[in-house]
Simulated scan of single mutants.
Amino acid sequence: MSVLIPLLLLVGALCVLDLLLTLGVIRRLREHSDLLAAPGGPGTVPVAPEVGTPIGEFSVETTTGERLTDADLAEGALVAFFSPTCGPCRTKLPKFVEHVAALPRGRNGALAVVVGEPEESADFVRRLSAVTRTVRESSGGALAGAFQAQAFPTLLTVGRPAGRLAVTANDVALAPSVPVAV
């Protein structure tokens, strides 16, 4: 009986210590959740470059062998970044192709960049090349770096508001398809 009381006190003390440690862990998890959920907090990836972000210089070759530089992009050109491993990209691709096919400037009104390995991006490249200038590059390529594109799909419009190529819109909505009356 004399051993039972000290053992009971030891078990009680261990339970209180365990409760305090658990409460501390829960408090830290809440702090981390708040930090991760805060805009611009650690772990957040910008969806698209900010409006006004200058575009770096680049010189790339399109899938048709045409040389393309930052000087070749016209005011208001639509630039899109796709990845064949991205589910939303597969969903947005047909709408983008339809939208670009209807642009008044034709092939020069847009630029599509497919980021991925050649074998997995072949279908994207084929479909996009039919309507616009298309570049296929590996992850971390020249265009993704110049445009600071970190997420897919990214749709931007570009212009030269201060004489230098920059992002003029970073949340481009594709026009819904409108049936043509015959």
Rank of each mutant, 00 (worst) to 15 (best):
V45M: 03
V47C: 11
A48Q: 14
V51E: 07
V51I: 15
G52A: 10
G52S: 10
G52Q: 12
T53N: 13
P54N: 11
P54Y: 11
I55L: 14
I55N: 12
F58S: 00
V60M: 08
V60I: 09
E61N: 14
T62K: 03
T62A: 10
T63E: 12
T64V: 10
E66V: 07
R67Q: 15
E75V: 05
G76H: 05
A77R: 00
L78R: 00
L78G: 03
A80T: 08
A80Y: 05
F82C: 07
P84A: 03
C86T: 11
K92G: 07
L93Y: 00
K95P: 01
K95D: 14
A102V: 04
L103P: 05
G106W: 09
A110V: 07
L111S: 05
V113L: 03
V114W: 14
V115D: 09
E117G: 10
F124Q: 01
V125T: 03
R126W: 06
R126C: 00
R127L: 15
S129H: 09
R136N: 02
R136A: 02
S139P: 07
A142L: 06
A144F: 01
Q148A: 11
Q150W: 05
L155F: 15
L155Y: 14
L156R: 02
L156V: 06
T157F: 08
